[in-house]
Structures are given as structure tokens and as C-alpha cells.
Design a protein around this nucleic acid. Structure first.
Lengths: 346, 346
DNA sequence: AATTCTCGTGCAAACGTTTGCAGCAAATAT
DNA sequence: ATATTTGCTGCAAACGTTTGCACGAGAATT
């Protein structure tokens, strides 16, 4: 007996229908669809024709229940507010579409409990793999994923020694380059606003900044370093503090673009001009960075590319579970906009 | 024979295991889970205990295959770049989590073909319902959804006469209020930057603006109306044009916040001060509107609330398909920030 | 000419649920 | 005391796939 009365005209076509139409068994249809086993060229063609003719759409539930794929990957992010995630998702999305995969989105809103909960649910059947952007509670479940051989890829998660596959960007080098650029322009007092320091990428950026100063025999002045949290208000606040200093910095390097926008606000509000009075540099190159005036000078993280590469890696792992985990660090690039110039006083 | 060798320690617990543990048949377990039919209180308790003890997680595929729910709703959006969508998703997400539902995300990147494709795929089994944010190609599939009785809710889609359920905001009233506010402050020449005019909400906002002018016996000057597309650069460009006018407007009303940010940029770049020289007002009240300085005066759309309400409506329709479609228009609210004041010359 | 191999195909089991139906015991009505 | 209802439970079918196994026919080997 049917468990549920199917809507009259939800014209569900199954492989059985296709089989009948093509004059083969449904098993053969399945073989054609999955390119498994040998199928007579003639029969294969009849099947394919029947499929397009009847408008066959596979039932994902049945498929994955029977041991096939669910053709879903889960994506775990903190929130969607900033352009940062949007760019990454663009890459993921695009790459998934190519492989006919679907995306299940989970936003944790930075609540750690949610994170673990999602992961267990997802990995028990709903998804074929998992993408984790900047996870905060990774230790809680990564071990279990690894043990069970469940495919996953970390995005932008430098930090805790990690055995699994991951994709990131050259945070240290990017910060080093940006700082070096400011020094080369003639800046000597360069303010720095950090990101959330519990994240690996924030640490790396701070280290890159310091390393560049040292490489140029400049002192590291702690009063020039403000702690931020990657959100715009903390950039604003940090800049206000930095501009209060008697011998105020001639340049400010914010650990991401959102905070750099906050810095721009603060500088202008103080009646100072960008870049005449203060040079500003950001990190990420989110789309909005190209929309402000003057265009923000920033360290481009290939965000879309990161999403893309991570997805490719994940899909490859799904297709070949034996694939050894790979750790990729994509290169950042200094994008010269209009927010930096040589300091006046030089 | 097993179709697929299950990973050794992917300790999958089924209702059969629960049944054994609790000393009842698996059918009874199912009844407990779904709260269907009568189950002895004692047995029910044993089952529940066994479930928590063994850590049961339902297999969604099997469940929906057997005619139950998939506990997934699909969400169709254009892109994730702006805070606008992020806010809506926050509401959706939250409401879904409460009902133990999952979110499948589809970004169309404004390509209409993708839109229809997603919809057919989703509705053939993967999802229990569909949320559509600002769809562009709705005519192509809405009719079919309605006919098949597939639950869906439109978000922020005013426009084409629509029989189905939808949630929007009072675009006309919001624009009317904002314009009236500027007029009350003493502004007589008020620039307006439209959104994408093919969208219903853009039309309504434009009409609201015009209506407010008329209500105050002010002429509608077409040179004061610039066409935009909801993205920041178009706000910048529109403002540049408006500021060129010999008798330039003393206030500019942008049809959304992104464009208002562009306007702020343009105004400052021209060496003008906000709000001394030019008052600015936006629409949406995205989080960033509170982060710029001075805080943007804007018309708040209850975005999160819209997502929340739409989700509630969708879930109700899923639970009770007979539920008559409802059309909701949530009230907007004028948020007074620091970007408006009385014009100097008055 | 008899044997083995390969290729193509169909049968049927399995995946983990939901739910109609039947059965049985206890409670109620006659 | 018998008949009927009611409450609870189990059985088994169905959902739409994937895939191991078996079988038959022709090709290749001996």
C-alpha cells in the first residue's frame, strides 16, 4: 500500500518508466545513469532518449538511501553579513553547480553548540561532504569525521595543527607585503588593527606586520597596535584611538576591509583627508572595497578562488576517499587603490 | 545484499535497534517519533529512553522516501553580497532551526534559467517547501507550483498580481514617510535614486516619493530622479549627477542603503558635508547603516522579521496544505540617524 | 567440437522509513 | 454471558534507487 497519496499530477517518472519506454530493465537504466557496468550502445541510446523524452529527474532520497550519493554538501559558516562569506560562497556555489551538487547552508551565528549539532546531523546521511569556513569549535568533531572517513575541507582555518585538508591564503605574506609597501612609501609610524586574535589568520597578519617592521629596522610600538574583531565598528574605534596619539600614525593597516571602512569613516570624521593625511590599507578585497572612493588599497584574498578550490578538493575526496589530504595556501596580492600615498612630512 | 559497505564505525542506529532496545516493534518506534496513533505511555517512555541512550538520528532520506517529510526547505536568492539578504536569512534560519528544519540554498546570480531549473529539481522530492526572495522569473514556475499544491512563500515580491502567499514591506508608505520627513525639515529640492525598476518594490518606493511631493504641493522634477540598480556604484553615480545640477538638491533619498553609501561617498568627495550641505536618507536599514558615521537615516525594513514571518507561513502551509494563502505587508519605520538636517538656506 | 571467457542483461535484495490493515486483549455495552 | 467497541501493537508493503549474482549468448580458446 502506498504510504502517501501522491499528488495526482506530480508526474513522477521513475527508472521503471524509463525502462519500459526503452525496452530494458530498470537495472540497466540505473547502469546507464551511473555509467557503471557494460551497457550495449544501442540500449544506452534508447535509455537516454527515453530519459529526455519523459523528463526524468532522479529521486535523490532513494538514490542516497540505496547507497549512492546524496549530491549535497554541507556548508558551515558563522554569518552572512559581510561580503567576505558571500565571495567564498560564490566560488563554492559555482563549482558545485558544475558537478550537479546542491548546497545545504548552516549558519552558526558563532554559537559553538550549534556547530557540533549540525555536523553530526549532516554527516549522518544528509550530505556527502562538508565545507567548514572559519570553524570555531572544530576540535569537537574533526577527530570523529576523520575517523569515520567523512570528507571535509577547512576554509581559511590556519591554526591548530591540522591533519585534514584545508585551503587558506598567505596571511603572513600579505600583511608583510602591505606593511612593506607603506614603509617604501615613506611611512614610519604605521598603525595596525588586528582581527579576532583567537583565529589563526589574525595572528598571521599581525606577525606579518611586525616582521615587515623588523625587516626595515623600525621599532614595534605597542601603542600603534589596536585590537579589533573584524567588524566595522571596531575599525572605527581603533582608528579613533590611533588618531588620538600625539605623534599620530601616518598610515593605518586594518586586518580586514570591513574594519578599513570603519577607519575611513573615522579619519574623515576627524576632518582629515584620505590619503593626504592618513594612508589606509585593508585586507580581503571584498567587492565593496572597489566601490568606495577612493578605491581601497588592500591585500586581495582570492576568496572566490578559495571557495572554488576547496570545493574541488572536497569533490575529489568524495570521489576518491583514498586521496591524501592536501593543504593549500593561495597567494594574496596587493591591490593598489587610492587610499595610500607618501606621508606629507617626508 | 548490502548495496554499499557501511563504514565500520559509522554507528548508524535505526528504529529497529531502538525497537529491540525498548522491546517493541519498529513500527511503534515510528509512531512515537511522529506522534501518530496511540502508544502506551509506558512503551513510549521506553522508546524515548532508548532513543536518547543510543543516540538515534533519523535518516532523512528514508523518511522522505517513505512519504514523510524531508525537513528541508529550499531558499532561492540572487546573491549574498549585500547585507540585505543576510538579514533575511538570519530570520529564516532561526525560525527553521526551531522547527528542526534545514536550509538548502540556491543562488541564481540573477540568471533566470538557473531559477527554473532549481525549482523543478527541488520540488521533485528534495524539499518540503520553497522560499523565494525577489524572484525574477517567477511566472515560469509559480503556476506549476500552485497547481501541484507545492508550498511556497514569496519574499519582498510585490508586483505581478499574485495568488500565492507572500511577505513584503510597506514600500510605498516607507518612501512616503521618508520624503515627508525631508520636506518637514524644510527641503524643497529632493533628489531620488531608484532601484531596479523591473522590481515591484522599486516602483512602490518611487511612487511613495512622488506622492509625498504632491501631497506638499511640490513639483515633481524629473531631473531630480536618477535611475539606480540597488548597488553602491549606481548610488555614487546618481549622486554625482544630482550634485552637478545648477540648483542642486539639498537632500538625496536613495532607494536602498547600499546606494545611500554610494551617495555619502560622492557627497564627501565633492568636499561637501553630511548633513550640513546635503541630507541623505536610505532604505532597508542594513546593519552597516548603523556603522557609518554619522549613522544613516533610513527606512527600516524589518528584514529579519520578514524572513521569520515568511518561514512561519511556509511551515504552517506545509503542516496544513489547505491553509489559504496569505499576503502580508509588514510596516516600515523611519530610523532617524545623523545624515539629515534642515537645509542651510532656509 | 567442446570448453572457457566475456559481455550484456535481468532478478531481487537492501537502504530506513511511514502507514494501512489485521489481530488481540481489555473494556464497555447489550 | 455474549457481542461490540476501543486501545495498542505488529506485520508487511511501499517509496525509488544501487548493485551483487546468475544466466544466456556469442566469441575466443583449446
Amino acid at each position: 500500500m502506498r504510504a502517501k497519496q501522491r499528488d495526482k499530477d506530480s508526474d513522477r517518472i521513475t527508472i521503471i518508466d524509463i525502462g519500459k519506454e526503452a525496452g530494458v530493465s530498470y537495472a540497466t537504466v540505473s547502469r546507464v545513469i551511473n555509467n557503471k557496468g557494460n551497457v550495449n550502445t544501442d540500449a544506452r541510446e534508447r535509455v537516454l532518449r527515453a530519459m529526455t523524452q519523459l523528463g526524468y529527474v532522479a529521486n535523490v532520497q532513494a538514490r542516497s538511501l540505496a547507497g549512492g550519493r546524496s549530491y549535497v554538501v554541507g556548508l558551515l559558516v558563522q554569518d552572512l553579513g559581510t561580503g567576505y562569506i558571500g565571495e567564498i560562497i560564490r566560488g563554492i556555489d559555482d563549482e558545485l553547480a558544475k558537478a550537479q551538487y546542491n548546497l545545504m547552508l548552516f549558519t552558526t551565528h558563532r554559537r559553538k553548540v550549534k556547530e557540533s549539532l549540525f555536523v553530526t546531523n549532516l554527516t549522518k546521511g544528509s550530505a556527502d561532504g562538508l565545507l567548514l569556513v572559519l570553524p570555531r569549535n572544530a576540535e569537537a568533531y574533526l577527530e570523529s569525521l576523520r575517523r569515520r572517513g567523512f570528507p571535509y575541507v577547512l576554509i581559511d582555518h590556519q591554526g591548530i595543527d591540522e591533519l585534514g585538508p584545508s585551503v587558506g591564503a598567505s596571511n603572513w605574506q600579505g600583511a608583510f607585503d602591505a606593511t612593506s609597501y607603506l614603509i617604501k612609501l615613506g611611512h614610519r609610524r604605521i598603525g595596525f588593527i588586528t582581527g579576532t586574535l583567537e583565529l589563526g589568520c589574525s595572528q598571521k597578519r599581525l606577525e606579518g606586520y611586525k616582521a615587515a617592521l623588523r625587516a626595515n629596522d623600525l621599532a614595534i610600538d605597542p601603542t600603534l597596535i589596536q585590537e579589533g574583531d573584524f567588524y566595522q565598528p571596531s575599525g572605527y574605534k581603533g582608528a579613533i584611538e590611533l588618531l588620538k596619539i600625539s605623534q599620530r600614525p601616518t598610515a593605518i593597516f586594518a586586518s580586514n576591509d570591513s574594519m578599513a571602512f570603519g577607519v575611513m569613516e573615522a579619519v574623515r570624521e576627524q576632518g582629515l583627508s584620505i590619503p593626504n593625511d592618513v594612508s589606509i590599507i585593508g585586507f580581503d578585497d571584498v567587492p565593496q572595497a572597489a566601490n568606495v572612493h577612493p578605491r581601497l588599497t588592500t591585500v586581495r584574498q582570492p576568496l572566490e578562488q578559495m571557495g572554488r578550490v576547496a570545493t574541488t578538493m572536497l569533490l575529489e575526496t568524495i570521489n576518491n576517499p583514498e586521496r591524501p589530504p592536501e593543504k593549500l595556501e593561495l597567494a594574496t596580492e596587493l591591490i593598489i587603490g587610492g587610499t595610500c600615498q607618501a606621508p606629507r612630512s617626508v
